[in-house]
Design a protein around this nucleic acid. Sequence first.
DNA 1: GAACCCATCATTTTT
DNA 2: TGATGGGTTC
Length: 747
Amino acid sequence: MAGLNPKQEEACSYTEGPLLILAGAGSGKTRVITHRIAYLIDERSVNPYNILAITFTNKAAGEMRERVDAIVGFGAESIWVSTFHSMCVRILRRFYERLGGKNNFTIYDADDQKAAVKEVLRLLSLDEKQYPVRAMIAAISKAKESFLSPSQYEEQNAGSFREQNVAAIYREYQKRLRSNNALDFDDLICRTIDLFLQHPDVLELYQERFRYIMVDEYQDTNHAQFVLVKMLAAKYRNLCVVGDDDQSIYKFRGANIYNILNFEEEYPDAKVVKLEQNYRSTANILNAANGVIANNEGRKDKSLWTENPEGEKVVFTRYEDDRGEAAGVAKRIFKLLQAGGRLSDMAVLYRTNAQSRILEEQMIRENIPYQLVGGTNFYARKEIRDMVGYLKVISNPADDISLVRIINVPRRGIGDTTVNRMRDIAAERGTSLYDVLLDADQLPGLSRAAGKVKDFVELMERFRRTAEDGTISVLYQEILDQTGYRKELEQERTDEARSRLENLQELLNKISDYEMHAEQPSLVELLEEISLVADTDAEEDGSDRLTMMTLHSAKGLEFPYVFMVGMEERLFPSGLSLDSDDPDATEEERRLCYVGITRAMKQLYLSAAGRRMVNGNLTFPAVSRFIEEIPENLLQKEGKQEDADAIFGSQDRNRYYDEWQGTTFRRKTGSGYGVRRESRPKPTMQRGLPEKAAVDYTVGDTVKHIKFGRGVVKEMIRGGNDYEVTVLFDGAGEKRMFASLAKLRKV
DNA sequence: GAACCCATCATTTTT
DNA sequence: TGATGGGTTC
């Protein structure tokens, strides 16, 4: 195991029984996981077929797959590298009938859920104000995660009138999903658990298959996922979980930090390995991070250290206002560029998406190319959702939610009244809406609309026939043309319509791409990928751009130069977390700060503004407590450090803490900034740099890879003592891999 | 059914 | 500030 430190090596070679790897930021976690897999196969003769590696995001799964392929070579493809959700889909597609479902089920995403809840609220005549859709979805999700059925939920909250209604919403929601033959994301996990509980033979099948299980980002697992893993690992108990409690930042979406904190109680015989050597950051940056996180209680005891040089001090700049901050960041970026830095080495991180606007405006003004990561994703766009809606109905006509979405898009004279009447009939008959449409001409009271409904069903039936014997891309084009969707946009002749058309073209590209690469393309599988793979897997256009994103999106990434803006009380840590009665809320913000700081490799710039526009209000925020938690000797402070003094003269800072609400002013209308946002550049994936290696080839050489065969080295980037090698293979196309992992031989 | 006006409301996000 | 959703009007 060349190039691993003793702890890493220990983690790789401990293969039997439960293992907890506490992997600090930048400690070479992914390397350990991939090496461990290789070790299992090479040294312990484990059949790759018996290995399961679970990650959280598709991106992580993709990267791991690539690295595993590169290091393992032949046989690697039989390792399951998967997200929780795609693993469950795969299992359910095979066995869902055992639970009485149909295996062509549709997966409902957040938007579909929202539509379903809204329908339920209307049905139950409940007020959206009192029962906000978001909160209802959260409540349902939470209930599912703790395996509470609607009735159990009702019982548990028997005392509360409101909760009784929530239970009713949950019940109706679930009923709807069932009759629509749809599962939401939580169902994917929970129904798989149901399947295992009700059919022990199926569970055993997978226990036998997955004799070695690894879970990455274990601190992000929720309760249901914990249970699922536990069931799978129950027989062989070869469960290795990797995570960092200090990087747990997703409590708000169900992550349960106790899964990792209590792992040793759950598995008393567990071995614990701590990876505490950081290879990423300078000592100053790392110590700043340590200083901040030390203020949290209830964490696993560990302290990151590094052999890296001390480096520059962490810079903290207080700007007069938010615009000044954006300008200051831009100015600093120019300085870095002059000194030979590259934009792709820099990132600006912020707490809330709302902060991006002012930064974007500044970057546009200064002609600094940038990319936003995250934000609205491709599949959330209206035109895409519409087209996907058509595909969903074609694939699963029972999907009422999607049917209602598209039945009058583009306008075809089937208005709300008609739809509601037909829904009533469907409810009466106990059939799906689509079944009602099928005999629209027999229906009473639809006189005028009946013809239009009939036209629509005929259209849909034609699509279904195409779906049966044509390709998906042909079907897609047919939908675009025969519904008049394309024509309508073409006639609009606005920038927006043009961009929508481009997106529709992009979707076609994705579909064709899928058809070319899938082993056995099917509409069901395509839709599954669309639902499960949220973000556009970025075309890496390779152009040199600044990256801007939220702190959350930055997890798992690294950049030589990092800017963390808006280091202000009530922005970061967020006001909501400070007002929360949950003491962990502020600790989670601190972990988020820790995550942000540890993204930086060479230089970290922190900043705050003395005046900031928040939700249309002018505020005078105090400097974030996190700044004060960084040891003074690591900080280089710039700008006016006093708080609202800049505006109010000499007032006590703490007064502004207390009275911040009193110091906000409503902004008068009319001002506004001149620059409008351009269409957003598409998000691009970033990947981290690894560590060591000695190589006997260089750019231009022909090399051989165990799996991909012959190829020519196109590029070698040094990262630490490793090389990131880009090879153009004769068969497999261009691949990037690490010299230390890929067993490349010069030919 | 579409265009407009007003009121309301604001973390973080992947699957 | 801005996005969004509901209600109103033509």
